[in-house]
């Protein structure tokens, strides 16, 4: 864990060689945007919005996965960086529905992105998949960040019920042969929607309330408690509105769950509000 000195936007910064550029920059208070990154998952570095410019490197490099090296010269907001981020936002904004992606409007403003420049181009058209009672898959909102695949796979659940299938612009998240989730290996832990950054994977309760216009984040509280089932001690963050639990999340930084839950913790709270 040796200390290294790098240069960030012209300023020398002391950091540790086991940190990524993103971690170092965040410690320095720099706001590098991310979409496909999440602290509890292996960086997939697919969205490319976190790229920064490094002296001596032809292409830009993803801050989320690249480790710092001694002497690195990093520019976090150069013209090339800003252009790439703007274009990533435009490419995504023009092809998928980002309406439930938190803070995306601020990002669009920050980088001057105007996705409508590509109006008329191909989009990810897909009707929401509703094949179970617990959550909805609305892939028209999917930016293919790979997080759900990772959470279902080797980073957490190790169930591997979903994969990226197909190739290129036609690539989608799906089960084998597009089977309905209840016919697939899915165990309904919900860790996929726990990590989804765009609302493409969304609990049915939230989906229906949003459709009905009753989803009101200002009226919601989040309370941390412990799952009532087995003895592992998983932390639950319960989202409550009008004295009703709407969904259960889990803190990313707690070393018991690392943000992940099982089906009982994720959905097993309905017994306290049965009528």
């Amino acid at each position: 864990m040796s200390g290294v000195v790098i240069t960030v936007d012209g300023r020398p910064v002391e950091t540790s060689a086991d940190l990524t550029i993103l971690e170092t920059c965040r410690e320095e208070g720099l706001d590098i945007p991310t979409l496909c990154f999440l602290e509890n998952l292996t960086p997939a570095n697919t969205c490319r919005i976190c790229v920064v410019e490094i002296g001596g490197s032809r292409a830009l490099v993803p801050a989320c996965s690249r480790r710092v090296e001694s002497g690195m010269q990093i520019k976090t907001e150069s013209e090339r960086v800003r252009h790439t981020r703007m274009m990533v936002l435009e490419l995504l904004g023009s092809s998928v529905d980002l309406s439930l992606t938190p803070l995306v409007d601020q990002l669009m403003d920050r980088y001057g992105a105007a996705p409508d420049r590509f109006d008329g181009g191909a989009t990810v058209e897909e009707a929401p998949t509703i094949d179970n009672q617990l959550f909805v898959r609305d892939y028209a909102k999917c930016i293919l960040c790979y997080k759900c695949v990772q959470a279902c796979g080797v980073d957490a659940q190790n169930t591997f019920a979903i994969s990226v299938v197909g190739r290129g612009f036609e690539a989608r998240i799906a089960t084998e042969y597009q089977l309905a989730l209840p016919d697939s290996a899915c165990v309904f832990c919900g860790n996929c929607f726990g990590v989804c950054p765009t609302g493409a994977l969304i609990p049915t309760t939230e989906y229906e309330m949003r459709a009905a216009g009753t989803w009101d984040e200002d009226a919601q509280t989040v309370t941390r408690t412990i799952c009532p089932y087995c003895g592992v001690g998983c932390n639950l963050d319960l989202v409550v509105q009008d004295n009703r639990i709407l969904k259960a999340l889990s803190p990313l930084d707690h070393d018991v769950t690392s943000g992940h839950l099982c089906i009982k913790g994720r959905f097993g709270w309905q017994h306290v509000q049965s009528e």
């Binding site: 009672q133 617990l134 899915c186 309904f188 959905f267 097993g268 709270w269 309905q270 017994h271 306290v272």
Partner: peptide, 14 residues
């Protein structure tokens, strides 16, 4: 879970 008093409260696809 156990006798299903709590887990019976939600619908599980599996």
């Amino acid at each position: 879970f156990n006798t299903g008093v709590q887990s019976g409260g939600y619908e599980s696809p599996i």
